[in-house]
Amino acid sequence: MTLDVLAAGILSGGLYALIGLGISLVFGVLGLMNLAHGELVIAGAYLASLLVVDSGWDPLLALPLAMAGVALIAYPLQRYLLTPLLRGDKSAPLVGTFGLSLLAQALFQGVFGTHPKSLPASYADSGISVLGLRIQTIYLIAFALTTVLCAATHLVLTRTRAGSAVRAASADPATAAVLGINVSTVYAMTFAGAAALAAAGGVLTGVAQSFTPTSGLPLLLTGMAVMALAGIGSVGGVLLAGIALGVLQSASVQLFGGGMRDVVVYLAFFLVLAVRPQGLFRKAATG
């Protein structure tokens, strides 16, 4: 494998990790497979586009607002719709998030139209040379931001009272409730936090690539692949899994051509599920 293939894989893996982090967080804490996660990613991109395309903001300045905006939308969804569904039939929340996914796509189409959009920025199509390698600046930024957000998530979960409450609610919601933890609020805060991370991924995706109302599904699949490789409950593992996925994709393109990219990735995905269902990095990192 050449150095540029490795670099491209590692850097694109940063973006994959950011998209996978939210799914992993929600599944790890709430036990909820959020099928609307891709739409939360795209919601971040569309919210940012209101500031970037319509008002001329830099996407990186719009990013925190998009994160906050999507988190504000996500909180009541979890608190008043999904958390009650979690207490019922196991399939109800899954169907609920699928319904939200379809609803969000229809809303995006109605409000923003169906044409692809992109978030313009000087670093979207610029490159820098590092050790003789040409690297797309936005992927470098995405990788750095993902690292920061992963570290922040890890610290919040392990070093704060809120993190303790999240871990308690995740381990045993009934006992946590007896101890005075408002589990419904913890769930909603976790979902909102995951949505904010998704929104960050959306803004970066919008800068590096493009987005449409139906772009969420492939992003959801990418996130699920990252989560499966990482294992549940490992923030550091998510970052490593994203990188592994990126490198695997780049290497497969180099070795077998573009046509085999997805085949190789999903083959690895199924192999990990079959051989090591707890994920590749569960023991390697704590979180």
Binding site: P116, S118, D125, S126, G127, R134, Q136
Partner: peptide, 16 residues
């Protein structure tokens, strides 16, 4: 497909 071209155009410019 349009999204593929969007990504490729950005990458072409970045990689000169």
């Amino acid at each position: 497909a349009p999204p593929d071209c969007f990504a490729m155009w950005k990458q072409m410019k970045a990689l000169a």
